[in-house]
Amino acid sequence: MTLKEIADILGATFITEPDNPDLHIRSACSSDMMSAVLYYHSPDSLLITGLTQLHVVRTAEIAGIISIVFVMNKRPDERAIELAGQKKIPLLTTPCCMYTASGRLFRAGLPGCSHK
């Protein structure tokens, strides 16, 4: 599924414009707990979260997450946006809650990160 398709499905807007809106996302992880993101990560995956701190972007970068969607219209601060820009991790924000965002993307065929 491409990033652009994900944005459409979630009615999401880009906080940082992606270099490539056709970036291919292979799976998704819905979590607010960063150790879970580090534990269950899969390559080329999307993080769906309600947390907006700088260390969320760092966690994503270290876990190999390639894009982050913030739920319920949340927006991270400028430092997080700047870091995401440097690391080339496009950020999106959606009015959906984590349940609806997960539900819609799963229905559209996006798998979850593999459970290990």
Binding site: C29, S30, Y99, T100, S102, F106, G112
Partner: peptide, 16 residues
């Protein structure tokens, strides 16, 4: 055993 994304996805389909 499922992760949050997947169980949410299945529940969403079930309750829809």
């Amino acid at each position: 055993q499922m992760p949050a994304f997947e169980i949410a996805g299945k529940l969403y389909r079930l309750l829809a």
